[in-house]
Amino acid sequence: MFPSFEIFGRQIGMYGVMTVIGFAVCFLVGSRLIKRFDIDIYDFALTMIAAVISLLIFSCLVYGMTHIRLLINYFAHINEIGVDKLWEVLKYCFGGIVFYGGFIGGGIGILVYTKFNKSMRIHRDHILDIYAVLTPLFHVFGRIGCFLGGCCYGVESEFGFTVHNNTINPAINDVNRFPIQLVESACNLLIFLLLLYLFKKSILENRLIYIYMLIYPVVRFITEFFRGDEIRGFFFGLSTSQWISIFLFVFALIMLPIKTRKMKQP
């Protein structure tokens, strides 16, 4: 739709711009949410940095896992292909991000940081609650970035948009496609509002992360059927994201009653 623009002769990707806006908005909202728990803004910033570092690593690793066959094949024939291609192979295989990888990575980052930071240890569940509220908010901007950039596009449809001359994702060009990115963005906005309401009313306190894992995977599982970019790995007729959706949903279904029982214990 509008993948990039030029400033001083440099191409600026709209996805990057939306990512930055998403992070900024999330930090602003997060800095308001932490007031309830009396968490220091600098501690919150450091926790978020830990989460973002972990998020980036895991999202790239999961992306790399979708190219595992290419990696294995390259290393099996490294003598014929040449070591000089290693950087290009790694750049291609790990040069992308997967949302679920980032979500899981961010959660792990928070758990690790709060484990080793004494002042934040008591706020672990609070931070996870805030993380659950902020994740769909960030995803709202991320999916708009996808729409503008022309990636993660929908199936061919009479309803939708036709993109021309997209050089970053040529596959999207000249076909009328369902704007699944905007649909997912709207769904994420609704999830954010719901979780924010639960947070404000202290409903299901310390368990919002599981609520998110019960709602978003269902949305993602359905929206995946309307995705037109059939290059995200398919196993037994389901995409990688759908398998991860099932895994997260089942995990949350098991963990939610366990956590509730733990909280009821004196």
Binding site: I12, T19, V20, T66, G96, G145, C151, N169, R232
Partner: peptide, 25 residues
């Protein structure tokens, strides 16, 4: 971040070709 991230890294653009290569030694 803005300079580095282009939307192309959001999906595996061109990975269909790469997978084909991976499957055919």
């Amino acid at each position: 971040v803005v300079m580095l991230i282009a939307c192309v890294i959001c999906v595996a653009a061109g990975s269909a070709a790469a997978d084909e290569i991976a499957n055919n030694p």
